[in-house]
Simulated assay, not measured.
Amino acid sequence: MAVIPVDLSGREYDVHVGRDLLEGAGRLARNFIRKQMVCVVADERAHELHGRRLETALMEQGHDVAWYLVPSGEASKSWNGLAQLCEWLLDKEVERGDHVFALGGGVVGDLTGFACAILKRGCGFVQLPTTLLAQVDSSVGGKTAINTRAGKNLVGAFHQPSLVLADLGTLATLPPRELRAGYAEVLKYGVLGDRAFFDWLSANGPAVLSLEEQPLEYAVSMSIAAKARIVAEDERETSGRRALLNLGHTFGHALEAETGFSDRLLHGEGVALGMVLAARYSARMGMIGDADADLVAQAVATAGLPHDLADLALDCDGQKLAAHMRHDKKMDAGTLPFVLLEAVGKAVLKRDVSLDDVAAFLDGQLRVA
């Protein structure tokens, strides 16, 4: 088991990575449980697959469990979903000193974290991520949010968990497509800031996706450690350092919006294709060569992830995709910063990108078959 600290100047917390962590949750999280009753918010599927393990672990430590089940999918991250969860937590008499547990993927973690950020002006929570994407990305760093008609994650708060238990055993229950979507976020850490890790993934990616124990733990731990370093430097995304974690997301969120935030394009798939588009746009800007952009595209393709915009067969043009970007929460004074590449393994934030030029670029990509 690996333990990665997230150092936030007096608000440190640990991320545990390993197997059978749900079985040890009652012991590992004992410092965050004050009452006999523990409130757990869970994705319906995660509850079906892993709920008994967690409940047994907590009961062995003398606790009872109150379950709140959330339907799978982004639709649960809504105003209505947030209101219903907050009312339930209030009914359960959750206090500011209590900790709510979140079992599931990024939707449950985001929703629970935001509810805990605002409930009685802030109570604690423990993340128990059960998807690869949540383990390496959304469960670490404290970004919580819901979706609105205007776009994804536009209403939220920074609210750090007190503990994260990333049980690698839960990944064996993921559908292959969802596992690959999570791997996109792993690959992202190599592309944006660690060429050696990118090269390691090029050689060991199939072993990671096959859930071989040592490569999997190494890949997840390296990803979390990379995010922890960046979050410690720029927790609230004020210096621009944390913004680098958005590599692939500006393009990806636009594609998710155009596909209705549906199963047609999973979040990780959008990030994967978004990374390819960011690399190809970087080449268009003369920041990298076409060979480097091809290297990123090949890594994405080898993982079985979308790598060609034309393959989505979208019924839109580049201007419509750029219009989605105008609702991005990173818009500042009318401009949208883009995370682009100076090299594979070196991302930079560019604040002078023309959305009209991005639209023209996307028109070309939409036509390339």
Rank of each mutant, 00 (worst) to 15 (best):
M59Y: 00
A46P: 04
G62N: 10
Q36A: 06
A29P: 05
K77M: 10
L82Y: 04
V17H: 09
H50N: 06
E55P: 02
H50F: 15
Q84M: 12
C86E: 13
V41N: 03
P5H: 08
G24P: 01
L82Q: 11
Q61K: 13
V65M: 05
V70T: 09
G26E: 10
E44R: 14
V70F: 02
W88D: 06
Q61G: 10
L85S: 10
S72Q: 12
A57N: 05
D7P: 00
H63T: 10
L69I: 05
V38E: 07
S72T: 15
G51N: 10
G10F: 08
H47M: 03
D7L: 14
L54S: 09
L8M: 12
V17N: 00
A25H: 10
G81A: 11
R11F: 10
H50Q: 10
G10R: 13
G73P: 09
G26Y: 06
W79I: 15
A75Y: 02
E48N: 08
S76H: 08
L82G: 01
L69S: 08
T56N: 14
S78E: 11
W67E: 08
W79Q: 12
H16T: 02
E23I: 00
T56Y: 02
V3K: 09
L82M: 13
W67M: 10
S78C: 07
R30C: 14
Q61W: 06
G10C: 07
Y68C: 08
R27W: 01
L8F: 10
E48I: 00
T56P: 00
S76G: 14
E12Q: 14
L58M: 06
T56F: 01
M59G: 13
A83N: 09
C39S: 14
R34V: 03
L22A: 07
S9R: 15
K92D: 05
E93G: 02
Y68E: 09
A66C: 07
A42D: 07
V65T: 11
P5E: 10
H47I: 03
G26C: 09
A25T: 15
V6G: 10
A25F: 09
E87I: 07
D14W: 00
A66Y: 07
A57K: 00
V65C: 07
S72L: 01
H50R: 11
G24S: 13
D7Y: 03
V41G: 03
